[in-house]
Amino acid sequence: MEKRRKERIDRGIMVRSDSIYALMSWRELAYLAAPRMLLIIGMLLLPLVPESWNWQGTVTLVCVYAMLAISFDFLAHYIGLVSLGGAFFVGVGGYLAGILNTTYGIPPLYTIPVAALGGGVICTLLLLPCLALRGVYFAIVTLMYPLLLVRLIEALDILGGTDGLLGIDGFSNPWVEQYLVIIMVLLFLFGIRRMVNMDIGLVFRGVKDNDQAVRASGINIFYYKGLAIFIASSLGCLAGACIIYIFMWAGISLFVLDYSILPIAATVIGGAGTLVGPVLGCLILIPISELLRDFGTLRIVFYSLILVGFIVFKSEGIMVWAQRKYHQIERWTKI
């Protein structure tokens, strides 16, 4: 029997430098632009599905989780800090926006950016002492903070206690709400992708690969880790600020573990380290999770089965697989 093996060849457009493409024709330009345009147009079309599908709320939820997933993916796969801090970021950002809105009456348009930046500063300051930690130890600390804050709010009965903050404004109409979050997801997705491919992104990846070598290069890793946490936590706080205006309520359920775990599941399904993958993961997971509500308590069973299936059969993630298929030609050759 003659032996054959599968051969993978890069398409000609992939020149040897990863930062420069040799574009020779409109066709090649289209080849590069098509997947990006597909994502952008697809995201922009999301709110346009018929209202009978009962889909509107899901779109915003998908986008909010997508922001958290991008934040997780950035921290875990470009800095090497595995964070379970989704709930922490959402809680801090949500409460900050809620206080600004209810106590000072500042409209959502201003509180959202303020909560994102201010929340980012608060989260970064709280996480600064843990910057020397890596891997699972950092994850544990980020998991403890939301628990700590919940008990603090409960026990001291501050910030509305268990009732939460009432009387928060909503968005003026669902279109504004949906397009606002969609555009923010796209902006952050492409912005962070651009950043990790710049020289500063190389330093981030260097910190992940080998932080001692970065120190030996005369670069302060403490500063770059802090900066990365600020970027990621700002994004998380932004998601939190959006959530309270969607629910028109801020309470201790903002610190619920779903905000930490679901983005990680989405990242695993979508493809870790791609930044686009987590968004796709959210686009798949969140609607499934909403559809499965009809099954009542069995929902989690089906949900878990789907997750296990993905992890066993496509552990590399959808996006990694798709990128390979798109950029490489596969063929069988005799050996």
């Binding site: 190389l202 330093v203 970065v214 290069s217 005369g218 670069i219």
Partner: peptide, 10 residues
């Protein structure tokens, strides 16, 4: 090598 070239000293 680009990473050390990004350092303040370089």
């Amino acid at each position: 090598v680009v990473i050390p070239l990004f350092s303040p000293r370089a």
